[in-house]
Amino acid sequence: MDTEIKSDKKKLNKKYWQFFWRSWAIQGSWNYERQMNLGFLYGIAPTLDRIYKDPKDIDKKKEAYKRHLSFYNCTPQTSAFVLGLSSSMEEQYAKDPDNFDPESISAVKSSLMGPLSGIGDSFFQGTIKVLAFGLGINFARQGNILGPVLALLISFIPAYLVTWYGAKWGYTAGNQFLSKLNSEGAMDRVMYIAGIVGLIVIGSMVASMITLTTPIHMGGTFKLQSTLDDILPKLIPVIMTMFMYWLIEKKVKTGWILAICIVGGILASVLGILKA
């Protein structure tokens, strides 16, 4: 008995690792037509191969493979949850094909990818990235190799945890887990905390990492910058950031904004308005 349980556990762990690695690799053939669909197919392929081992099931296998060729797009880390959940649904469907509608698998996939990529992207690409590299840049500018090392560590740990537990919970308790999270508002709370931390750190970075000052002065007595420093130090960096924010909100194209930054920067330097 004991050995059976052990080997079951081993099999389960193997599945989790498959979801884990394959969800990390999900962007490998990102394309404009259906985005990460082939990545998702690659992720769920071992499950389908296991279910439809028998050569006489080949038509069902083809059908299942094609089912997962449809459009898919989600953050790699949170995709492990979707992979786990879809895999367990595929297994249920194979066990009980008469009472289980395979359409529901696709439906669950498409209903999950919106919220999960929203949360995943703003958490990993927003807050975690800002924290990791905010601290990283701080050290790197002092020539300290700890900067990039720290940035990598801070990036890796949450990514590892979210993917691993996503795979595990998605496969074992997917549906219940999700409704529980929603009913307790846990998702909203995580987003709220992440948003606050991200914004405070960005504010601090604007004050410490934009080195713009003005060399404008009249004679030897009046220096505009020291007056500014008395009122609000780092006024120029924050105004510049707000100006850029305004340009983005006005939907000015990235290429134009970059050009404005470079040409404007050179002009302001030549005219003696700004100094770095």
């Binding site: 970075m205 850029m244 920067g265």
Partner: peptide, 14 residues
């Protein structure tokens, strides 16, 4: 100067 203006754009994007 341009290289000091560009981070403002990066932060604004965030």
């Amino acid at each position: 100067v341009a290289s000091a203006v560009l981070p403002a754009y990066g932060f604004a994007l965030l």
